[in-house]
Design a protein around this nucleic acid. Structure first.
Lengths: 134, 134
DNA sequence: TTTACTGCAAACAATTTGCATAAAA
DNA sequence: TTTTATGCAAATTGTTTGCAGTAAA
């Protein structure tokens, strides 16, 4: 039951915090691999599962079906994600939280959880895009 | 470019409308298979891709990485989904729409789209569950 | 007759799992 | 020493693709 503290887990945790936004397990593995750590892909997946279970990481499904992970401060929040560079901003929305609960209750749903994610193009990427098309 | 009108496409479209909520391609295929249509899995996927492209179907990623589809009336809306039976209720949320746009803009994001999905246990499933544990 | 669509099987990609070994505790 | 984690490779699972044959148009 207790999680052991291996250097692999540390590295995954670190790599995750270093990432600007959401990253895939594959990307993390590739990054760690490049730093000549011989870490295995399965280990990265296992570490991520562990971090997610303890609430240290946050996970969501990208539109094309990959699981993305992110170091997570704590608590419940949602994201504003750049669909170009993956940068994510944590957002809070107390009124929306309330609305979600009310909506679920109104339709007789229980144990409601919600996912609210806004995808867009962040300011920097928008600038790059404009420059490219000029 | 033009889509042809085959009975397979019809069946997929029908099966999709008959479904109470979001269904996976695999589930649709199994259902059609049971009705002694010898329809192929690939065909189901291709039909769903077509329907999605023309806006006749709606798609989202389930928490465990499967793509789920649903016949879609039209326009922009969100869902309240039972995580047990898959039943979905379309919900509208003008205030939340506005909030999403404002939030994106406030952080410099452009071309924002959002996904708001509430997962819960619908009244019927909750009843069954209570009955089972009694 | 032309061209898109179908079924099947092989190809793929992301993720999980079995097992012998290595290393925390 | 005991127990859990690792790394590898094989196994799964959801989805896509290549191809020869079939059927809309």
């Amino acid at each position: 039951m207790a999680q052991r503290n291996t250097w692999q887990r540390e590295r995954v945790r670190d790599a995750l915090s270093d990432a600007e936004g959401f990253v895939s397990a594959q990307a993390l593995h590739a990054a760690l691999r490049d730093e000549n750590t011989g870490i295995g892909l399965a280990t990265v997946y296992r570490a991520l599962a562990g971090l997610t279970a303890t609430g240290e990481a946050d996970t969501l499904q990208s539109p094309d079906g990959e699981a993305l992970y992110r170091a997570c401060s704590q608590g419940h929040h949602h994201h504003l994600i750049c669909r170009r560079c993956g940068k994510a901003v944590e957002i809070e929305a107390p009124p929306v939280e309330r609305w979600a609960q009310e909506t679920a209750a109104k339709h007789g749903f229980r144990e409601a959880e919600h996912m609210i994610d806004i995808f867009g193009i962040c300011a920097e990427c928008a600038a790059e895009k404009d420059a490219a098309s000029a």
